[in-house]
Amino acid sequence: MKHTYQVSGMTCGGCKASVEEYLSEIAGVTNATVDLEKGEVEVQMNTHITIETFQNALPEKYTITEKLEEQAEASLSSNFMLEEEKSKFQQLKPLFLIIFYITTASILLNYKDWNWGAFMFDFMGLFYIVFSFFKMLDLKGFPDSFRMYDPLAKKIPFYATIYPFIETALGLMFLIRFETTIALWITLVILGITTIGVTKTLLDKKSIRCACLGTALKLPMTEATFIENAIMIVMAILMLTNII
């Protein structure tokens, strides 16, 4: 690896030669080249060496420091990572809010005569209705986004077109308690397929838009997408276990 440092205290060719000699003697340093006009030294090393090690190897008249540009780059890189994480959270905020409201509504519908089965049916029904609503806002754009990661939609484009209507139908089936066993099996199939695509996308570290809330809200594909599908799949399995 190669790094450039600023060195103060050098005034002549003798200083140049001395700094190069002292730094070259440090274990791990393969070469040290001083640019006297710029007051810099370029150090090639086999492994990272701390600035303190360089300073201890030099006489007191020389002071070696990180280049301002490299310090700025490190600072910018750190700030960018923080902003990226903050931005991702801000982008996912609508998803978290929707899940929160769906959960709250499902609890309020059943709190007087609590029943876990009824709660889960209401949660799944509201989940499908709300999520299908956002997909309906852009029926032309949604299929293209959905085909980016859903395996079945990639092979059968028409499936991506009718998917919002499938979600609406499933939502109504859960809310009015109509053929719920069939709705649960369909949930396992369609969300299971989608989750396979989501998992592959996350493992491949691809940066694509999640179509779970359509195209109106530009949500990134993250672990949150996997978790929301997993919640529905687990609920479907629990309900099927109780019914069958």
Rank of each mutant, 00 (worst) to 15 (best):
T195P: 03
W116V: 07
L76F: 10
G125Y: 12
I233P: 00
L191Q: 03
M232S: 14
R147S: 06
E167I: 00
M232C: 15
E21V: 02
T161C: 03
L108Y: 12
E21G: 05
S106I: 03
K140P: 04
M136Q: 10
C210E: 05
Y101V: 14
S75K: 12
E70D: 15
A105K: 03
T161A: 04
T241R: 13
I193M: 02
I243C: 00
T104N: 09
T241C: 12
F226D: 01
F131Y: 15
N79M: 08
A105Y: 07
F123M: 04
K93S: 10
K61T: 05
D138K: 04
M221S: 11
I227T: 09
N229C: 01
M124T: 06
N31R: 14
M45N: 04
W114N: 06
D113R: 11
L92V: 04
V7M: 10
A183L: 02
I129M: 13
L184I: 09
F96Q: 03
W185K: 12
G117R: 13
I190S: 00
L202Q: 04
L108H: 09
M221Y: 03
Y128C: 09
T53M: 07
M1R: 11
E60Y: 07
G39P: 03
L76I: 11
P94F: 01
L95F: 11
L170W: 06
T30R: 15
T161F: 11
N79L: 12
M235H: 02
P157Y: 03
I231R: 02
I156V: 15
E70H: 07
W114C: 05
